[in-house]
Amino acid sequence: MSKYLVDKFLFTIDRDPELVERYREQPRETVEWWEAERANAVLNCHAGEASTWLRFTEEERDALANHDHVALFALGAHPFLTLTLFIAMFERDHGPLEYQKAFGARLAHFQMPYPDIAT
């Protein structure tokens, strides 16, 4: 599993309001597009710089495509990256702090030590 790649996806999508909306409305298509077009681009680097080997596992791809923050947490995705992106996508559908509380409640079954979030 590439925690780096999952975290890179969460980070880059969250930084672009158009991509946030695209991911909200068309999650699987956005994940597939991002993996094909952006996964191997080097962050904060000149155009043309890229690697060639980064790919999501099926488990990562499915968790991202299903907006499954519990599975992403279990896989080691950074919880702050996940939370900030998911707030941008879903908070508008809920009352004040309602989404954040539900997000946390769905993670309540995890016991310490939590999954490793180091990349």
Rank of each mutant, 00 (worst) to 15 (best):
L64F: 05
L85S: 03
F80C: 08
H67V: 05
L83N: 05
L72P: 04
L81A: 10
F90W: 15
H78T: 12
P79Q: 06
A65E: 03
T84Y: 13
T84I: 08
H78F: 07
T84D: 15
F73D: 00
F80Y: 13
R55P: 08
H78Y: 13
P79E: 05
E59T: 15
L54K: 12
F90Y: 15
H69S: 09
E91N: 12
P79R: 07
F73P: 00
R55L: 11
E60D: 10
A77I: 05
A88F: 01
F90Q: 02
L85E: 00
A63F: 02
D62H: 10
E59C: 08
D68I: 06
I87S: 07
F86D: 01
F56M: 08
T57C: 07
L64H: 01
I87Q: 10
E59A: 13
L54M: 15
A77H: 04
L85Q: 00
P79H: 12
H67F: 06
F73W: 06
D68V: 07
A71H: 01
E59V: 12
V70W: 00
D68H: 05
D62Y: 05
N66C: 12
L64D: 02
R55Q: 14
R92Q: 14
E60S: 12
H67Y: 11
G76Q: 04
A71E: 08
F73V: 01
D62S: 13
A71C: 06
T82V: 15
L75D: 05
T57A: 10
E60C: 04
T57Y: 03
F73A: 01
A88G: 03
A63N: 06
T84F: 13
L54N: 10
L83T: 03
D68T: 07
R92E: 14
A88D: 13
A77M: 05
L54Q: 13
A63K: 01
H69I: 01
G76S: 10
A71M: 09
F80W: 11
E58D: 15
E60A: 12
R61P: 02
A77F: 02
H67P: 10
F90G: 03
E58M: 07
